[in-house]
Amino acid sequence: MGAYQVLQGPEGYLPPAAAMQGVTLAGPGKAMIEGRHVEKQEAIECIAEKLLGATVPTFFPGPLVLWRTTDYAQERGKLIREISAEVGAKVIPMPDYRPKYPMINPEVEINPNHPNLTIWFNKIDVGVFIGVHCHQANLALKIIRGGTSCFTVALCAEEGHEEANVSLRETDNDTLRKLLATVKDLKKRRA
């Protein structure tokens, strides 16, 4: 049996947790594509390509970037908006993690307990998580992989996510600048 691949969904109603299938987090300086450990730059290029090739690319900023108005968070916010503008992506926030029974408004927000509603409603084909606390990100990523065909990217400030199709770790603002530069570069080469 080959290594388990964290592929674009739908994998099925209850996909196995990638970690349980033997997928491990990449170490410092590395990244992950579909569960494989790769060089960070390779993953950044993959993200840029996916974003530029998508029909409805979307950024999902979470509470860690939406609320903390430190200088660092504000700069991070600007970078996220620059990248999303560059690739023509929507920005749909995940302001908190309340299940908000009976339903959220999928047009304007995404919720980790039923992220599929927002993906389906907006027909999102590439979704980028950033600033979402890791536990909630893993939950949302797994649900998306289970029930939708959305390609997922995790721009994690900690150690990354097994459940994402592409995952960066220690995504600081410099990494975001690198992603922005890679996107611009790729656009130029394609033009």
Partner: peptide, 17 residues
């Protein structure tokens, strides 16, 4: 600080927030 919205996202925050 966690009750203040990052200026970069004010335009996309749902009304409730």
């Amino acid at each position: 600080a966690i009750t203040k919205i990052n200026p970069a996202f004010v335009d996309v925050m749902p009304q409730e927030y």
